[in-house]
């Protein structure tokens, strides 16, 4: 497998990066970098880690020698540590508070509890701002536990960007992917259709019952997409050969509408991408545009009810008059 880190890969411009991943030969992993500068979203770093876990021959790791300052960043965020790669970089470890959450593997509930507790002081934010971040991470990681069947658990990283006052979060797994998870209960033809189903409220891979089971309501991803939409941020989901990207809602659109069909949102969809075995999710939360979590819940409440009813109506049987 080969992965090249360009000088910039954030959710807004991440498509070329996804397209460039060479996943064909899992016996080795080769990582190259833009020679001048590399600045990437945490989802990218989590994806590299996931590829490493899928690499069959761990002695076949080839990393281009980095001469730029970016190598210090990769060292501190824990990329080289995950890869078991001795970067020969000796840097003074700064306190990461307020800047980033290093790449972390979370495999069970206890580890998730600890991760969330440890994460909060690192973010140095007010409780009102931390709530949606905790919420997003908890729901995404629990999805990995419950649906992905990943042996490696969930791979998480986050970074605070002072200039844009934004927290960018990546949660990645190399499990069965959304299509296989949803296919347990629904007939799905493509990865993009599976992503659409996963983002639709009331749909879960654990049952055909709209509204889910005692353990899954099929609402978690809808909530997360809604958090991004209400805050006018990016949300990206990549699984199999497909990617869904919620685009920023322009500020001129004063009224935010939460749709049950994610394709009705301002979004971009891609198919025929290199096949990602598992699921990669990225989300940005801009703290400037941060809407009070309570207000967001009001909006979700209104639209969730409407959307679930729409889903149910779609499945109503029509009387056959013969």
């Amino acid at each position: 497998m080969k992965i090249h880190l360009p000088n910039s890969a954030f959710l807004g411009n991440i498509d070329p990066f996804f397209n460039s991943i060479d996943i064909d030969d899992s016996s080795s992993l080769e990582i190259t970098f833009n020679e001048k500068w590399v600045s990437v979203h945490p989802i990218v770093l989590c994806m590299i880690s996931a590829l490493w876990f899928s690499t069959k021959n761990k002695s076949n790791l080839k990393i281009q020698t980095l001469e730029t300052k970016s190598k210090n960043y990769f060292e501190r965020i824990g990329l080289f540590k995950i890869l078991g790669y001795d970067s020969c970089i000796n840097i003074v470890e700064h306190d990461p508070s307020g800047r980033f959450i290093p790449i972390t593997i979370v495999k069970n509930s206890d580890e998730l509890n600890n991760f969330i507790k440890d994460m909060i002081p690192l973010l140095h934010q007010e409780p009102e701002q931390v709530n949606p971040i905790k919420y997003v991470i908890s729901e995404l990681v629990r999805n990995v536990f419950e649906h992905s069947k990943s042996n490696s658990g969930a791979i998480i990283s986050a970074q605070y960007y002072k200039k844009s006052n934004t927290i960018r979060i990546g949660v990645v797994d190399n499990g069965i992917g959304i299509k296989e998870a949803i296919s347990k209960s629904y007939y799905i033809e493509s990865d993009i259709d599976a992503i659409k189903m996963a983002l639709t409220p009331g749909i879960t891979g654990t049952t055909t019952n709209i509204g889910g089971t005692e353990f899954n309501a099929g609402a978690g991803l809808f909530f997360i997409k809604s958090i991004a939409k209400v805050n006018r941020d990016f949300f990206v989901m990549y699984s199999g050969d497909a990617m869904y990207k919620l685009l920023r809602t322009p500020a001129k659109n004063k009224k935010i509408i939460l749709y049950s069909d994610p394709f009705n949102d301002k979004c971009s969809k891609k198919e025929n991408l290199p096949y990602w075995q598992g699921t990669a999710v990225g989300i940005d939360i801009c703290l400037d545009r941060h809407q009070a979590f309570d207000q967001l819940l009001d909006l979700i409440k209104k639209s969730y009810r409407k959307n679930r009813n729409e889903q149910k109506k779609k499945r109503f049987k029509k009387p056959r008059f013969i």
Binding site: P127, K134, Y135, S138, N216, A217, G220
Partner: peptide
């Protein structure tokens, strides 16, 4: 302070 919808569900 906070709960997820999944927890309450």
């Amino acid at each position: 302070d906070s709960a997820t919808q999944s927890f309450i569900h």
